[in-house]
């Protein structure tokens, strides 16, 4: 019985160590908008881990197909960063959608 309890506690400790030391970031998209020809996304890391995240932009103008672009950025624990990507030919009035992906593909 005692041995079983110790084994379970050891497993929980390993899990806690993993979470503490090996966690990646937990990115959340705060906002996304166009700033002239540049698509801009604000990303906040809500986790205690660090790592590289990928932001996928999808810019849709009044006419024509959507333009997609992705950028990678390193993010520290609990940090907020702005990720930008220049869209050739954009005028600034396009609709922009962004998605944060972790781990980057």
């Amino acid at each position: 019985m005692m041995r079983g309890v110790i084994s379970v506690l050891a497993l929980v400790a390993i899990g806690a160590l993993f979470v503490h030391s090996c966690s990646g970031p937990r990115p959340r998209l705060v906002s996304a908008h166009m700033r002239g020809p540049v698509a801009s996304a604000t990303v906040r890391n809500e986790g205690p881990g660090e790592g590289e995240v990928e932001v996928e932009f999808r810019v849709q103008g009044r006419a024509g197909p959507a333009v997609t672009k992705s950028e990678k950025a390193s993010i520290a624990p609990h940090e907020e960063v702005v990720v930008e990507s220049r869209i050739d030919g954009a005028r600034g009035d396009e609709r922009v959608e962004a998605q944060v992906v972790y781990p980057p593909r």
């Binding site: 497993l11 899990g15 993993f18 979470v19 090996c22 966690s23 990646g24 970031p25 937990r26 986790g47 881990g49 660090e50 790592g51 590289e52 990678k72 390193s74 972790y102 781990p103 980057p104």
Partner: peptide, 19 residues
Amino acid sequence: LLTLGVIVLFVLRTPWVPG
């Protein structure tokens, strides 16, 4: 249960991976 625990942990707290 052990492997499922690790899988759930990976989903809830995605581990760090090299960039």
